[in-house]
Design a protein around this nucleic acid. Sequence first.
DNA 1: GCAACCGTTTGATGCTCGTCAAACAATTGA
DNA 2: TCAATTGTTTGACGAGCATCAAACGGTTGC
Lengths: 109, 109
Amino acid sequence: MTADERLAQPATADIDLVTVLHALGDPVRMRLLLSYADGAEHSCDPRDLGLDHLHKSTVSHHMRVLREAGVTTTRVAGRNRFVSLRRADLDARFPGLLDALLAAAGAPA
Amino acid sequence: MTADERLAQPATADIDLVTVLHALGDPVRMRLLLSYADGAEHSCDPRDLGLDHLHKSTVSHHMRVLREAGVTTTRVAGRNRFVSLRRADLDARFPGLLDALLAAAGAPA
DNA sequence: GCAACCGTTTGATGCTCGTCAAACAATTGA
DNA sequence: TCAATTGTTTGACGAGCATCAAACGGTTGC
């Protein structure tokens, strides 16, 4: 048994706008964002994310880009990783941006 | 004498979110966006845009990316090109997004 | 006309990126 | 202990991108 930990991620104040936009300027990562928009934690399994066509290592790469940009956070629990949106941090750093992005991307309100 | 014309650009309904984010996920183009945030028309001269360090052909390339993404519009008048933000079109397509982006980027209100 | 001007286009170069495959690491279940 | 599970890392490959330099194309002014 091991205490839950989180993978490395930037501090809220260090989240960079251009880096976030670059991370979201890719169709796969935008789809991931929409998956995470429900606020819940998600596993890394491509099949749980509507990404059957992609190799698991590719999905892992995209999740790393999102995490290092400050968009998501990853909790490690045993052999599973649970990824979720850093909604509060993003709202604090860039007020209104995430809501506008999700609305623009057609996320359910 | 020739009537003013505009360079090719996508229709408002065809502006794609991921394409816009990809266009803005670059420091040079983000700086251009901030220059255009005043709503005025701007020439393509790198020196008018705080981009002294870049070759004019590089700036031309970045302006093309912004235009083809639907972020800017370019009016042709003689040998000059006047570039400006498609603020109304972007607001119509993605309500609130541009304001949130400009605020996040530190544009003057 | 002709030269200067404004910006685009093309070609070349080096870097980054998205993808897959295979190897690896850590954890869990039998 | 051993095998299956979950996800990461590394290496390789092709595509795309940012940049510069040089050539080009309209336009304007002389």
